[in-house]
Each structure stands twice: as structure tokens, then as C-alpha cells.
Design a protein around this nucleic acid. Sequence first.
DNA 1: TTCCATAAAGTTGTGCACAATCTAATTGCG
DNA 2: CGCAATTAGATTGTGCACAACTTTATGGAA
Lengths: 152, 152
Amino acid sequence: MAKESLDDMLCFSLYAASRAVTQAYRAVLADFDLTYPQFLVVISLDHAGELSVGELGAAMQLDSGTLSPLVQRLESRGFLTRERRVGNERVVVVALTEAGRALRRDVSLAVECLPEAYGIKRDEIVGLLDQLHRITVNMGELTTSLRSPAPA
Amino acid sequence: MAKESLDDMLCFSLYAASRAVTQAYRAVLADFDLTYPQFLVVISLDHAGELSVGELGAAMQLDSGTLSPLVQRLESRGFLTRERRVGNERVVVVALTEAGRALRRDVSLAVECLPEAYGIKRDEIVGLLDQLHRITVNMGELTTSLRSPAPA
DNA sequence: TTCCATAAAGTTGTGCACAATCTAATTGCG
DNA sequence: CGCAATTAGATTGTGCACAACTTTATGGAA
């Protein structure tokens, strides 16, 4: 064995599929000058109402190093507000503005057509989502254990 | 409907799973000072013997804007050679050096343990790879058609 | 109350992704 | 041949991802 090609490696198939999907979203989101991660932030905030930067990071699996500048860019364009929580000034709470909610509505309509084009049958989707979640959880735990010191 | 959370969106589940897997690889590859895309280049070259930058791009689905600097970094560390093809000086042919092949062997051993940790049963893998390939192909075509002008 | 550990977000630096542009080599057509 | 169109890579600029570090705020414990 060994010498397998990239297409037989699950890690690469995931990497390629994720980028292909993101590119399709990018093509649609370009009309709104939104990047794909920015789109995810808008979706999350519309869903949750308001979230701290940390909660947003938990939802998207991203740290403040990625989210802070991303959220600042969306704030500077008027799509969301950032304010420190009274009683705990460390926490920055983020919420959509009315312009942000309008954007969410317009963008949702525009991307609605994309999931149909996956070529995945409706009855395959639930199983696929479950497999992807398992991979995400298991790899997250593995990464954590790889970084921890070996058992004392 | 609408108002669904990120975890129910296939695009996000793919994005999260891909990053989680890449992070596990990163934790292992750190010992070799290799990034995940650099690892994929080493695998591809070991598999194919030698490839032009364009062929490497076709295999990895990346353009020269990403590959050129990446390949140059690997060349500067002595893992591969870059030379223009005689008879067509536009083409740059890339191949592993002996050091590159040795790196491939060492890295392969180190990452061998990762696929077992996905938590995906052996008999699920083939179907999952097939679904991911379908998504990659279908989204690639959709992106192309979204960028082309409407049918004349 | 003072001080230290912890927590949350922001900052900095590197390397991808990708669009857009540029340069140079090649092809082909008049 | 002469030269416009094409092709292959490289370059430039923006924005993510992520590690490492800094800043500021909070919460205890002595």
C-alpha cells in the first residue's frame, strides 16, 4: 500500500469539498461584498440574537485572532454593533443592526439555491451531517491530546 | 424554517470538519515544520514522480498564486527542485530531492495513526469519499456557471 | 485591601486561498 | 516572417486561520 493518491485520502477529499462549496458561496456572496466567514457570522447572530465574541468563536470554532478583525470589518460597514458588557467589561457583545438583518434576508434568498446543487439526495444528508460532526468532534479531541504532554 | 443553526448547514459542517482534520495533521506535521498544504505537495510529488506547477494545481485544485510561493518555500529548504522544461520554458517542473523523499517516508509514518481516529467505520469510508467527490465536482461546475455570463 | 491567577479580547506575524494583474514563452495565422 | 492571441508561472493585494503574545478586567486568597 502507501503511495495512494490525494483523492483516496479522506483528509484531502474534505479539504477539496469544503473549498469547492465555499467558492460557490463566494460567487453568490460577491454581490454583497461578503466573505464566507462574514456570512457565517451574520447567520449566527441572526439565529442567536446577540453573542459575545467568545460565544461566536465557540459556534464557528474560531478564536479571537480570526474573529476580532472580521467582526471589526462588519462593524465598520454598519452591519453589527460591538459593545462591552456592563458588569463585565472584558466581554464584547455583538449584535446585528437593522442593516445587518436586512442583509441577512437578502443574502438568504441569494444562497437558497446552493444546497440543491450539492447533488446529495435528501435522505443522504442526515447521515452525512452525522459523519462530519463525528469527524469534527473526534479530530478536535485528538488535536487536544496531541498537544497535551504525554501521560505523566 | 429558515433560522437554522450552523450545525445543520452542510456547508458549515464541511468547513468545520475540514479545519478540524487539518488541525490534527498540523499537530503532527509541526515536528517536521511542514504545513498541511506543503504535506499534500510532498505526497503528490512522491506519488507522481514529477509534476509541473500546473499539474500540481490540477491535483490539489489550487492556482499558481497559492502554489508558486509554497513550492518556492519547499525548494529553499531543499525538499524539491524546480526547473524549466527544455523545449517549453514556460513550464516549471517540480520533483522531490532525496531529502524530500526521506521526509515523505518519515512524515507518512507519523501521520499513519490519524485516519483511525476519524471515528468513521471502514465500510462508511467509500460512501463518504463518493459523496465528497460528488459535492466537489458539482460545486465546481456551479461556480463556473455562476461566473459565466447568462446564456446568450 | 493587595496581589496574583485567570479570563476575554485584541494584536502581531506567518502562511495559505484567491482574484487580478503582470511577464515571458509559445502558437498560429496573415 | 511578423505579430496578435494564448498559455504557464509569478506577483500583488486582501482576508482568513492560527500560534504566540499583549492588554485589560475580574475574582479570589492571603
